[in-house]
Protein backbone atom coordinates (compact mmCIF):
# COMPACT_ATOMS: atom_id res chain seq x y z
CA UNK A 1 0.00 0.00 0.00
CA UNK A 2 1.49 3.37 -0.97
CA UNK A 3 2.21 5.86 1.77
CA UNK A 4 -0.73 8.13 2.38
CA UNK A 5 1.09 11.45 2.65
CA UNK A 6 3.00 13.54 0.21
CA UNK A 7 6.70 13.61 0.93
CA UNK A 8 8.19 17.03 1.64
CA UNK A 9 10.08 16.98 -1.62
CA UNK A 10 7.05 16.46 -3.87
CA UNK A 11 6.17 19.47 -6.05
CA UNK A 12 2.48 19.23 -5.11
CA UNK A 13 3.42 19.67 -1.44
CA UNK A 14 3.72 23.41 -1.88
CA UNK A 15 0.39 24.15 -3.53
CA UNK A 16 -1.28 24.52 -0.15
CA UNK A 17 1.35 26.92 1.15
CA UNK A 18 -1.06 29.82 0.82
CA UNK A 19 -4.62 30.53 -0.19
CA UNK A 20 -3.51 32.07 -3.45
CA UNK A 21 -1.22 29.24 -4.49
CA UNK A 22 -3.94 26.72 -3.75
CA UNK A 23 -6.44 28.72 -5.77
CA UNK A 24 -3.95 29.04 -8.62
CA UNK A 25 -3.46 25.29 -8.63
CA UNK A 26 -7.15 24.35 -8.44
CA UNK A 27 -8.22 26.88 -11.05
CA UNK A 28 -5.33 25.73 -13.21
CA UNK A 29 -6.81 22.24 -13.47
CA UNK A 30 -8.19 21.60 -16.95
CA UNK A 31 -11.87 22.38 -17.38
CA UNK A 32 -14.32 19.50 -17.65
CA UNK A 33 -16.03 18.80 -20.97
CA UNK A 34 -19.49 18.23 -19.52
CA UNK A 35 -21.04 16.80 -22.68
CA UNK A 36 -18.09 14.49 -23.26
CA UNK A 37 -18.07 13.36 -19.63
CA UNK A 38 -21.76 12.50 -19.62
CA UNK A 39 -21.53 10.77 -22.99
CA UNK A 40 -18.58 8.71 -21.79
CA UNK A 41 -20.39 7.73 -18.59
CA UNK A 42 -23.51 6.84 -20.55
CA UNK A 43 -21.65 4.77 -23.12
CA UNK A 44 -19.84 2.81 -20.42
CA UNK A 45 -23.27 2.16 -18.91
CA UNK A 46 -24.35 0.18 -21.96
CA UNK A 47 -21.95 -2.70 -21.45
CA UNK A 48 -23.71 -6.01 -21.23
CA UNK A 49 -22.51 -7.98 -18.20
CA UNK A 50 -23.93 -11.50 -18.13
CA UNK A 51 -23.63 -14.97 -16.59
CA UNK A 52 -20.31 -15.56 -14.82
CA UNK A 53 -19.18 -11.94 -15.20
CA UNK A 54 -22.47 -10.89 -13.65
CA UNK A 55 -22.06 -13.31 -10.77
CA UNK A 56 -18.55 -11.94 -10.15
CA UNK A 57 -19.78 -8.34 -10.35
CA UNK A 58 -22.65 -8.98 -7.93
CA UNK A 59 -20.39 -10.61 -5.35
CA UNK A 60 -17.84 -7.84 -5.76
CA UNK A 61 -20.55 -5.19 -5.37
CA UNK A 62 -21.88 -6.86 -2.22
CA UNK A 63 -18.38 -6.87 -0.75
CA UNK A 64 -18.13 -3.14 -1.51
CA UNK A 65 -21.33 -2.01 0.15
CA UNK A 66 -21.14 0.36 3.08
CA UNK A 67 -24.46 -0.65 4.58
CA UNK A 68 -25.82 2.62 5.80
CA UNK A 69 -28.41 3.84 8.22
CA UNK A 70 -28.39 7.56 8.88
CA UNK A 71 -31.81 8.37 10.25
CA UNK A 72 -32.87 10.42 13.22
CA UNK A 73 -34.94 7.40 14.23
CA UNK A 74 -32.02 4.94 14.39
CA UNK A 75 -32.23 2.73 17.46
CA UNK A 76 -29.57 0.41 18.90
CA UNK A 77 -31.78 -2.48 17.79
CA UNK A 78 -31.86 -1.27 14.21
CA UNK A 79 -28.09 -0.83 14.18
CA UNK A 80 -27.60 -4.34 15.59
CA UNK A 81 -29.90 -5.76 12.91
CA UNK A 82 -27.94 -3.88 10.27
CA UNK A 83 -24.68 -5.23 11.68
CA UNK A 84 -25.99 -8.79 11.52
CA UNK A 85 -27.04 -8.24 7.94
CA UNK A 86 -23.64 -6.80 7.02
CA UNK A 87 -21.90 -9.89 8.37
CA UNK A 88 -24.27 -12.42 6.77
CA UNK A 89 -26.22 -10.60 4.06
CA UNK A 90 -28.10 -13.73 2.99
CA UNK A 91 -28.46 -16.26 5.81
CA UNK A 92 -29.93 -18.79 3.38
CA UNK A 93 -26.73 -18.80 1.33
CA UNK A 94 -23.52 -18.82 3.34
CA UNK A 95 -21.36 -18.27 0.24
CA UNK A 96 -22.58 -14.66 0.06
CA UNK A 97 -19.69 -12.33 0.90
CA UNK A 98 -19.95 -9.93 3.83
CA UNK A 99 -20.33 -6.23 3.10
CA UNK A 100 -17.37 -3.89 3.56
CA UNK A 101 -18.71 -1.84 6.42
CA UNK A 102 -21.68 -0.50 8.26
CA UNK A 103 -22.06 3.27 8.28
CA UNK A 104 -23.78 4.94 11.23
CA UNK A 105 -23.89 8.16 13.25
CA UNK A 106 -21.10 8.59 15.86
CA UNK A 107 -23.29 7.78 18.86
CA UNK A 108 -24.12 4.38 17.33
CA UNK A 109 -20.51 3.39 16.65
CA UNK A 110 -20.12 1.40 19.87
CA UNK A 111 -23.31 -0.56 19.17
CA UNK A 112 -22.28 -1.24 15.58
CA UNK A 113 -18.78 -2.24 16.65
CA UNK A 114 -20.21 -4.84 18.99
CA UNK A 115 -22.61 -6.12 16.31
CA UNK A 116 -19.87 -6.80 13.76
CA UNK A 117 -17.15 -7.84 16.22
CA UNK A 118 -14.81 -10.51 14.91
CA UNK A 119 -16.24 -10.54 11.37
CA UNK A 120 -13.85 -8.25 9.50
CA UNK A 121 -16.72 -5.90 8.67
CA UNK A 122 -15.62 -2.35 9.41
CA UNK A 123 -17.55 0.36 11.18
CA UNK A 124 -17.70 3.71 9.44
CA UNK A 125 -19.09 6.77 11.10
CA UNK A 126 -20.19 10.06 9.62
CA UNK A 127 -18.86 12.97 11.61
CA UNK A 128 -18.16 16.71 11.42
CA UNK A 129 -21.76 17.82 11.89
CA UNK A 130 -23.05 15.57 9.11
CA UNK A 131 -24.85 16.22 6.78
CA UNK A 132 -24.71 20.04 6.68
CA UNK A 133 -21.23 20.49 8.14
CA UNK A 134 -22.29 23.82 9.57
CA UNK A 135 -20.55 23.88 12.94
CA UNK A 136 -17.39 25.31 14.46
CA UNK A 137 -14.18 23.38 13.80
CA UNK A 138 -13.84 22.47 17.49
CA UNK A 139 -17.26 20.89 17.46
CA UNK A 140 -16.48 18.96 14.28
CA UNK A 141 -13.19 17.68 15.68
CA UNK A 142 -14.86 16.64 18.93
CA UNK A 143 -17.41 14.75 16.82
CA UNK A 144 -14.58 12.94 15.01
CA UNK A 145 -12.64 12.14 18.19
CA UNK A 146 -15.81 10.75 19.75
CA UNK A 147 -16.35 8.40 16.84
CA UNK A 148 -12.70 7.30 16.74
CA UNK A 149 -12.65 6.74 20.48
CA UNK A 150 -15.78 4.58 20.17
CA UNK A 151 -13.85 2.39 17.72
CA UNK A 152 -14.79 3.65 14.25
CA UNK A 153 -12.49 2.25 11.56
CA UNK A 154 -13.48 4.88 9.05
CA UNK A 155 -14.66 8.46 9.32
CA UNK A 156 -16.89 10.05 6.69
CA UNK A 157 -16.50 13.83 6.95
CA UNK A 158 -18.37 16.51 5.01
CA UNK A 159 -16.48 19.49 3.63
CA UNK A 160 -17.60 23.03 4.33
CA UNK A 161 -19.41 23.64 1.03
CA UNK A 162 -20.07 27.25 2.00
CA UNK A 163 -16.36 27.95 2.28
CA UNK A 164 -15.60 25.99 -0.87
CA UNK A 165 -18.17 27.82 -2.98
CA UNK A 166 -16.97 31.15 -1.55
CA UNK A 167 -13.51 30.29 -2.84
CA UNK A 168 -11.88 29.87 0.57
CA UNK A 169 -10.11 26.70 -0.44
CA UNK A 170 -7.41 26.90 2.23
CA UNK A 171 -10.06 26.85 4.96
CA UNK A 172 -11.48 23.65 3.51
CA UNK A 173 -7.96 22.23 3.15
CA UNK A 174 -7.05 23.06 6.75
CA UNK A 175 -10.26 21.53 8.00
CA UNK A 176 -9.60 18.28 6.19
CA UNK A 177 -6.02 18.09 7.50
CA UNK A 178 -7.25 18.80 11.03
CA UNK A 179 -9.85 16.05 10.77
CA UNK A 180 -7.25 13.71 9.29
CA UNK A 181 -5.07 14.37 12.30
CA UNK A 182 -7.99 13.69 14.64
CA UNK A 183 -8.52 10.35 12.89
CA UNK A 184 -5.03 9.37 13.94
CA UNK A 185 -3.52 6.26 12.46
CA UNK A 186 -6.40 3.93 13.23
CA UNK A 187 -9.17 5.40 11.08
CA UNK A 188 -9.31 6.00 7.34
CA UNK A 189 -10.81 9.30 6.28
CA UNK A 190 -13.51 9.62 3.62
CA UNK A 191 -14.17 13.15 2.45
CA UNK A 192 -17.71 13.91 1.25
CA UNK A 193 -18.01 16.75 -1.26
CA UNK A 194 -21.80 16.75 -1.65
CA UNK A 195 -21.42 16.98 -5.41
CA UNK A 196 -25.09 17.90 -5.77
CA UNK A 197 -24.31 21.22 -4.08
CA UNK A 198 -21.13 22.03 -5.98
CA UNK A 199 -23.03 23.18 -9.10
CA UNK A 200 -20.42 22.42 -11.76
CA UNK A 201 -18.21 19.57 -12.88
CA UNK A 202 -15.21 21.92 -12.66
CA UNK A 203 -15.97 22.37 -8.97
CA UNK A 204 -16.18 18.61 -8.46
CA UNK A 205 -12.75 18.19 -10.07
CA UNK A 206 -11.32 20.96 -7.89
CA UNK A 207 -12.88 19.50 -4.75
CA UNK A 208 -11.47 16.08 -5.59
CA UNK A 209 -7.93 17.42 -5.90
CA UNK A 210 -8.34 19.56 -2.82
CA UNK A 211 -9.45 16.56 -0.81
CA UNK A 212 -6.67 14.34 -2.09
CA UNK A 213 -3.99 16.97 -1.45
CA UNK A 214 -5.27 17.43 2.09
CA UNK A 215 -4.82 13.75 2.86
CA UNK A 216 -8.16 12.05 2.25
CA UNK A 217 -8.00 8.24 2.04
CA UNK A 218 -11.29 8.17 0.15
CA UNK A 219 -13.25 10.75 -1.78
CA UNK A 220 -17.01 10.36 -1.59
CA UNK A 221 -19.68 11.95 -3.74
CA UNK A 222 -22.46 12.83 -1.41
CA UNK A 223 -24.33 12.44 1.83
CA UNK A 224 -27.46 10.92 0.34
CA UNK A 225 -29.44 13.74 1.96
CA UNK A 226 -29.86 16.05 -1.04
CA UNK A 227 -31.74 15.75 -4.32
CA UNK A 228 -28.80 14.89 -6.57
CA UNK A 229 -26.47 12.22 -5.26
CA UNK A 230 -24.02 9.89 -6.96
CA UNK A 231 -24.39 9.90 -10.73
CA UNK A 232 -22.27 7.94 -13.19
CA UNK A 233 -20.86 11.21 -14.56
CA UNK A 234 -19.65 12.70 -11.30
CA UNK A 235 -18.27 9.36 -10.16
CA UNK A 236 -16.41 9.01 -13.46
CA UNK A 237 -14.93 12.46 -12.88
CA UNK A 238 -13.72 11.50 -9.43
CA UNK A 239 -12.29 8.24 -10.73
CA UNK A 240 -10.30 10.22 -13.29
CA UNK A 241 -9.04 12.41 -10.46
CA UNK A 242 -7.78 9.50 -8.35
CA UNK A 243 -6.19 7.91 -11.42
CA UNK A 244 -4.33 11.14 -12.28
CA UNK A 245 -3.38 11.71 -8.67
CA UNK A 246 -1.76 8.31 -8.42
CA UNK A 247 0.07 8.88 -11.70
CA UNK A 248 1.53 12.09 -10.32
CA UNK A 249 2.19 11.18 -6.72
CA UNK A 250 2.10 7.41 -6.44
CA UNK A 251 -0.60 7.63 -3.79
CA UNK A 252 -3.75 5.59 -4.31
CA UNK A 253 -7.01 7.04 -3.08
CA UNK A 254 -10.39 5.33 -2.85
CA UNK A 255 -13.72 6.47 -4.28
CA UNK A 256 -17.17 6.06 -2.76
CA UNK A 257 -20.31 7.01 -4.65
CA UNK A 258 -23.20 7.30 -2.22
CA UNK A 259 -26.93 7.82 -2.47
CA UNK A 260 -29.32 6.98 -5.27
CA UNK A 261 -27.71 3.66 -6.27
CA UNK A 262 -30.59 1.24 -5.80
CA UNK A 263 -30.35 -1.55 -8.35
CA UNK A 264 -27.79 -4.18 -9.24
CA UNK A 265 -27.79 -2.83 -12.75
CA UNK A 266 -26.67 0.59 -11.50
CA UNK A 267 -24.01 -0.97 -9.28
CA UNK A 268 -22.58 -3.01 -12.16
CA UNK A 269 -22.45 0.13 -14.30
CA UNK A 270 -20.35 1.81 -11.63
CA UNK A 271 -18.00 -1.18 -11.52
CA UNK A 272 -17.53 -0.88 -15.29
CA UNK A 273 -16.67 2.79 -14.78
CA UNK A 274 -14.09 1.83 -12.15
CA UNK A 275 -12.48 -0.82 -14.31
CA UNK A 276 -12.37 1.33 -17.43
CA UNK A 277 -11.23 4.53 -15.74
CA UNK A 278 -9.15 3.88 -12.66
CA UNK A 279 -8.32 0.29 -13.47
CA UNK A 280 -8.36 -3.09 -11.80
CA UNK A 281 -6.40 -1.87 -8.80
CA UNK A 282 -9.55 -0.15 -7.61
CA UNK A 283 -11.77 -3.22 -7.96
CA UNK A 284 -11.42 -4.03 -4.29
CA UNK A 285 -13.37 -2.88 -1.29
CA UNK A 286 -10.27 -1.24 0.09
CA UNK A 287 -10.45 1.29 -2.77
CA UNK A 288 -14.04 1.41 -3.91
CA UNK A 289 -17.28 1.43 -1.94
CA UNK A 290 -20.97 1.94 -2.44
CA UNK A 291 -22.76 4.03 0.14
CA UNK A 292 -26.19 2.46 0.05
CA UNK A 293 -28.97 0.87 2.03
CA UNK A 294 -31.56 -0.52 -0.39
CA UNK A 295 -28.95 -1.59 -2.98
CA UNK A 296 -27.94 -4.63 -0.94
CA UNK A 297 -31.42 -6.16 -1.11
CA UNK A 298 -31.49 -5.87 -4.88
CA UNK A 299 -28.03 -7.41 -5.16
CA UNK A 300 -29.17 -10.30 -2.98
CA UNK A 301 -32.30 -10.86 -5.06
CA UNK A 302 -30.20 -10.90 -8.23
CA UNK A 303 -27.80 -13.31 -6.60
CA UNK A 304 -30.67 -15.63 -5.68
CA UNK A 305 -31.93 -15.40 -9.26
CA UNK A 306 -28.55 -16.47 -10.60
CA UNK A 307 -28.31 -19.32 -8.12
CA UNK A 308 -31.83 -20.73 -8.55
CA UNK A 309 -32.89 -19.57 -12.01
CA UNK A 310 -36.14 -18.07 -10.76
CA UNK A 311 -36.88 -14.49 -9.92
CA UNK A 312 -36.77 -13.66 -6.24
CA UNK A 313 -38.93 -11.14 -4.44
CA UNK A 314 -38.79 -8.71 -1.55
CA UNK A 315 -40.33 -11.34 0.74
CA UNK A 316 -36.99 -13.16 0.71
CA UNK A 317 -34.77 -10.33 1.94
CA UNK A 318 -34.96 -8.30 5.11
CA UNK A 319 -37.08 -5.19 5.48
CA UNK A 320 -34.84 -2.46 6.80
Amino acid sequence: MPSSALTAAHPLKDVAASDSSLRRFLHGLPGVDAVGLEARAASLGTRSIKTTAKAYAIDLAISMVDLTTLEGADTPGKVRALGAKAVKPDPTDRTTPATAAVCVYPDMVAVAKEAVAGSGVKVASVATAFPAGRAALDVKLADVRDAVAAGADEIDMVIDRGAFLAGRYLKVYDEITAVKEACGTSARLKVIFETGELSTYDNIRRASWLGMLAGADFIKTSTGKVAVNATPANTLLMLEAVRDFRAQTGIQIGVKPAGGIRTSKDAVKFLVLVNETAGEDWLDNHWFRFGASSLLNDLLMQRQKLATGRYSGPDYVTVD
Binding site: G309, R310, Y311, S312, G313, D315, Y316
Partner: peptide, 9 residues
Protein backbone atom coordinates in the same frame (compact mmCIF):
# COMPACT_ATOMS: atom_id res chain seq x y z
CA UNK B 1 -42.86 -20.02 -17.15
CA UNK B 2 -40.91 -17.25 -15.38
CA UNK B 3 -44.17 -15.94 -13.91
CA UNK B 4 -45.06 -19.33 -12.44
CA UNK B 5 -41.65 -19.69 -10.79
CA UNK B 6 -41.39 -16.04 -9.74
CA UNK B 7 -41.10 -15.77 -5.97
CA UNK B 8 -42.96 -12.47 -5.86
CA UNK B 9 -46.10 -13.66 -7.65
Amino acid sequence: TPLASHQDV
